[in-house]
């Protein structure tokens, strides 16, 4: 793997918690790796599996979905649904051995700026180690 590889990570952040968490991390001047392209969604359950797949096919090396902790969803139960959907997609990727580690779901509340920085930095490190995803480099896909 080339040393200068800069991963392309897509982050779907829930408007009510993780997006505010990212904001807090920024205003707290925490160091965050600059590889995450943030897409603000109204709820983590807005992210359907096709959006994730699309991201992978169109150039993402990793996809992070972040939402409110279970029980704290702004819409009461959205994150329970996305948790199931995530488990399903992850299982498919695992069964077909399609690098399931490139997909992550994390609960980050609006007050967890520090956790946001940690999660993003750790995920960016993991993806850098994995290298470019074959999903968007293989011309036969």
């Amino acid at each position: 793997m080339k040393q200068d590889f800069k991963p392309n990570i897509v982050g779907f952040l829930c408007n009510w918690c993780s997006y505010a968490g990212a904001d807090l991390a920024g205003s707290s001047k925490l160091e965050i790796k600059p590889y995450l392209s943030v897409i603000r969604v109204m709820c983590s359950s807005r992210v359907n599996s096709n959006l994730v797949l699309n991201a992978f096919l169109w150039g993402a090396d990793g996809v992070l979905i972040a939402g409110c902790h279970p029980g704290d969803c702004h819409y009461e139960k959205g994150n329970y649904y996305v948790r199931r959907r995530f488990a399903l997609l992850k299982k498919i990727l695992e069964t077909l051995d399609l690098e399931p580690d490139r997909l992550q779901l994390s609960w980050i509340s609006a007050s967890e700026g520090k956790r946001y920085a940690e999660v993003v930095n750790k995920f960016a490190e993991d993806i850098t180690r994995l290298g470019p995803s074959a999903f968007h480099t293989n011309p036969n896909i």
Binding site: L53, N54, L57, I92, L98, H136, N140
Partner: peptide
């Protein structure tokens, strides 16, 4: 990105998507 694409495109995507 790839320097070449398969036509018709999106076949693998279709199958994984259908699995989901």
């Amino acid at each position: 990105q790839k320097g070449g694409i398969r036509i018709p495109p999106g076949t693998i995507f279709f199958h994984i998507g259908r699995m989901i």
